[in-house]
Write a protein that binds this DNA or RNA. Sequence first.
DNA 1: GTCTATACGGCGATAGAC
DNA 2: GTCTATCGCCGTATAGAC
Lengths: 203, 203
Amino acid sequence: MNTKKDNTEDKILDAAKNVFIKKGMEGARMQEIANEAGINKALLHYYFRSKDKLFDAIFSKIIGLAFPKIGQIFQADQPFVSKVEQIIDTYLDLLMKHPYLPAFILKEVNRDPSMFFKLVLKHGFSIAPILKIVTEAMDRGEIIRMNPQHLVVHVLSMCIFPFAAKPVINFVLFNEDKQATQAFFEERKQEVKAFVIRAISPE
Amino acid sequence: MNTKKDNTEDKILDAAKNVFIKKGMEGARMQEIANEAGINKALLHYYFRSKDKLFDAIFSKIIGLAFPKIGQIFQADQPFVSKVEQIIDTYLDLLMKHPYLPAFILKEVNRDPSMFFKLVLKHGFSIAPILKIVTEAMDRGEIIRMNPQHLVVHVLSMCIFPFAAKPVINFVLFNEDKQATQAFFEERKQEVKAFVIRAISPE
DNA sequence: GTCTATACGGCGATAGAC
DNA sequence: GTCTATCGCCGTATAGAC
């Protein structure tokens, strides 16, 4: 249902996404992608001239996925705290569905930042309107005054980092008990919201 | 001063550390390490039988570096809030000195978690005593009651994640202005401490 | 469009002289 | 211990038949 494997190109894209996300650009093997797609290596090069080109196609799709339309939430006419709650809910829902995204994106961004930058520009993503709305909430006294950039980074850190460090958490905190780890991640939505709201609410 | 390049083995270890941290296990090339050490490839294999062995040696040293003796801070007899402040100071000082650690460790942990697990066991690192001290502070009413595991993850996330995502922050938040990015990271010590303390202090 | 077979290069590892 | 030369594999990419 999440994949339409009718034609070969889609089969390739779907297989490539799975392999690249698991192994990264450097760790992935064209042979493995071909196997997963149920075809042979030569056909990969027929559809996408090179491994680089294939990876670019996948990476672009994934970046589009990871930068959802947060702008809409922020523009809705509601208390700032509600906006923050919605942002955290939206982001953690997304990450629960795609837990490998953070590790994958961090790896590739650090390997070749320029690739990421081009995509950010292409998708027209900008942080400025978000910072503006945060600042206005402070001006109205809805939340305490602090550096808005740091607030944004605080929230994103608490949302994203645990997924990138999931193997560490699973081992150090829960002794490889997968169920306990899963439960922990499901709790985080409430925990992060409560923590942030307590930190930014006046008095 | 941070390196003793008198003998060949140390030259190799120093060069390998630089290259592995920058490129990771998969991206690093034995030739590049040899160049950086001012020797040739064959000598690498003479000292360390294989690339894997050489990487293990480096990775072990780096993990030892990244898990400083936090236990000592936690055992000192002082208010819990002071302990938290010291933890954040200590960790951010460490990361400002070694900003590439988070991206490197996350990459390798996700590539081969077992390697990391062995080292955690070898270094005898355990989270239990930290959780215990946090819980006791809650029992005494020094901080509000919440899930200690989440508190630990919150704090570590805010400390570590920005370094792993440094290229993103540098581009999205500061338009590649390195000075502004550097200033932002220097501010974080105060910002994180203030944010956390506000979130956990009673009333 | 899809396959098999193969060319080509890069890289880890080894042999062997000094 | 340190070097040069080279082996052998593996992975990307291409040629060419169907």
